[in-house]
Design a protein around this nucleic acid. Structure first.
Length: 572
RNA sequence: GCGCCCGUAGCUCAGCGGAUAGAGCAGGGGACUUCUAAUCCCAAGGCCGCAGGUUCGAAUCCUGCCGGGCGCACCA
């Protein structure tokens, strides 16, 4: 189904015959033909013969007659391949009857843990959580669709010293409104009020400290209050996930506290393995190869000098749990780039301890920051962090207004639905459509713009196709013959056939902008096709063929956007 | 000081060993008695940060600079 792979498989034996060993034919799309193979040039040096002679001989051995209508030698030694129309049409037909659009289920399914989102209890979610949540959810959707066992891990910040003050604030008799704030989901006010008291009130500070001790000591009354905080926060987070169309559920909350019982054993085991070293009163692991500012080895502080456990301990416990108990072989950490070094150290230490080794491996799926129009980290006017919900609501409001303006035929309910799908889709697509390693500038005009590489453009292409079938009251016949006489039809067929290859690559590198770029190319190619090739006005077999192309395009767009976590409204 | 990410059209970004470096936006010109113009078509726009090196071939790989961002011991 994957044309590039098919051509590669055909050319590889021919190259192997000429070279006397396996050679990657390096097949790629070409401007001069449909595909080109570049391997003859590199091989020429290796075998000490002119590139064109090598290419000619490869050509003699290659069996391409059924796939290609033209195969020619070009330039210094390129092989230009033109795919035969009937071969391409055959592949499109195969796609049309494929429920998975040509994408195979993973040959060797794995258990994959995707660690993402991770907001803090009793704190508002802000833009800083957006990228982790959006990218992580796309990873979970994609790998799940490919047949892997995906375990979503929402590593909530639900433990630590701040909980002393938060609990004290909750029960403070002078603060009858605190519980109210909490239940209303006004976490920002709640946290800030607690913080403010902590900063100025010595008595409150002392109570908070005692409360931390009680919490860590397992005091039942304190734990009950702590659970209240956690539950209220989780309830709130779920409403945000619902708004964002994120697949995280209550089952996926695995707070830091859930590893508490494992921290002691983890440290003990590190000690037993001889990996622990005391430094300035703290118990540390020194994974090799990491040096700090002063040139000395950098420690991973597993137990602090005050006896408390540091986050490296939690991260190590989580790894041990995930590989050992859950049987995961792929651990994804969708966390910002600044934390790269921390995770590399944790992975190294886990490797030393024997908790992380082949076939299991951990990958830091890092990402850059979201910037404001001033090119600096996005901040609210007051200089604080920007509330995620506020951002999403603004996106929905803008998109809803746009939908009403562009299509007055939409009723109130439908306009609201479209506005939500488009607004949320725009935010997520802006995040997923550029290289995640880079920072990106959040620009309302651009991401809600209806032209260019944006979610609305893709959604529009989809809804336009749906409207064809709605209007005509017909369905595509998957077994209809495919004819590709027009260049625009051929171009569309090539894009459709390329879906599997892109999905397969993204499953490995988790570079979702490749999938986004592919979908954009598909939608753009479709738009050209749609402009030049009448569908419903065509007759007989041509009409049937074009209906199949339309239907396939819609299905690929829908599936592709689904994998990115973006909805596809039937009308816009 | 060490390490990581990033410098490509005016702007936002693809491309990361192959032929003439691609899109979108903005700006210019065109196409609606519409299978949804939230669209399409055409033209214009580039010392790919700089300098070396490897290679038949470098935006792409290596080295060194320059510029921007971030991280480097008890907060996660």
């Amino acid at each position: 189904m994957d044309l590039e792979k098919l051509l590669t498989d055909r050319l590889a034996p021919a190259f192997a015959t000429v070279a006397g060993e396996p050679v990657d034919p390096v097949v790629r799309r070409s401007q001069r033909a449909d595909f080109q193979s570049d391997a003859a040039l590199a091989l020429a040096r290796q075998v000490g013969r002119p590139p064109r002679a090598v290419a000619t001989e490869v050509l003699r051995h290659a069996e391409l007659a059924d796939l290609c209508s033209v195969v020619e030698l070009s330039g210094p030694g390129f092989l230009n391949l033109t795919v035969a129309d009937d071969a391409l049409a055959g592949m499109v037909s195969a796609l049309a009857t494929s429920a998975r659009l040509g994408v195979p289920v993973a040959a060797a399914p794995e258990t994959v843990v995707v660690d993402y989102s991770a907001p803090n209890v009793a704190k508002e979610m802000h833009v800083g959580h957006l990228r982790s949540t959006v990218i992580g959810d796309a990873a979970a959707r994609l790998l799940e669709w490919l047949g892997h066992r995906v375990l979503r891990a929402n590593h909530l910040g639900d433990w630590g010293t701040p909980f002393g003050m938060l609990i004290e604030h909750l029960v403070d008799p002078g603060e009858p409104g605190a519980a109210q704030e909490l239940s209303m989901g006004d976490l920002d006010s709640f946290y800030k009020a607690a913080r403010a008291k902590f900063d100025v009130d010595e008595a409150f500070r002392e109570r908070s400290r005692r409360r931390v001790v009680a919490l860590q000591g397992g005091d039942e009354a304190t734990l009950r209050l702590w659970r209240l905080l956690v539950e209220q926060s989780e309830r709130y987070f779920l409403t945000v996930y619902d708004l964002l169309d994120v697949t995280l559920t209550e089952r996926d909350f695995h707070g830091e506290s859930s590893y508490n019982d494992l921290l002691g054993p983890v440290v003990e085991e590190l000690d037993r393995l001889g990996l622990l070293r005391e430094s300035a009163g703290a118990a540390c692991v020194f994974p090799p190869g990491f040096v700090g500012r002063d040139g000395a080895s950098l420690p991973l502080i597993v137990r602090k000098s005050d006896g408390g456990y540091g986050y490296p301990a939690t991260d190590l416990a989580a790894i041990r749990h995930r590989t050992g108990t859950l049987g995961a072989t792929r651990l994804l950490y969708v966390v910002g780039l600044p934390q790269r070094q921390h995770f590399e150290m944790v992975y190294a230490a886990a490797g030393q301890a024997g908790w992380l080794g082949p076939p299991a491996r951990a990958e830091h799926v890092g990402f850059g920051s979201i910037l404001g129009s001033d090119g600096r980290m996005l901040r609210s006017r007051a200089g604080g962090s920007v509330k995620l919900v506020g951002l999403l609501e603004e996106a929905i409001a803008r998109a809803t207004a746009l939908a009403r303006e562009r299509n007055p035929e939409l009723g109130e309910v439908e306009a609201a639905e479209v506005g939500r799908a488009v607004g949320i889709g725009a935010v997520k697509y802006a995040d997923l459509s550029s290289d995640r390693n880079r920072d990106y500038v959040l620009d309302w005009e651009r991401m809600l713009s209806l032209d260019g590489n944006t979610a609305p453009y893709l959604q529009y292409a989809y809804s336009r196709i749906r409207s064809i079938f709605r209007r005509a009251g017909v369905a595509a016949q998957p077994d209809a013959g495919i004819s590709l006489a027009e260049p625009a039809e051929r171009a569309l067929a090539f894009e459709l056939v390329g879906f599997a290859g892109v999905v397969g690559a993204v499953a490995v590198n988790l570079e979702f902008h490749h999938l986004a770029g592919y979908l954009y190319r598909l939608a753009a190619t479709f738009s050209t096709f749609y402009e030049r090739c009448p569908v419903l006005r065509a007759d007989g077999p041509v009409r049937e063929s074009r209906l199949v192309l339309c239907d396939l395009t819609a299905r690929v767009l829908q599936q592709g956007l689904y994998l990115l976590g973006i909805r596809t409204p039937e009308r816009m």
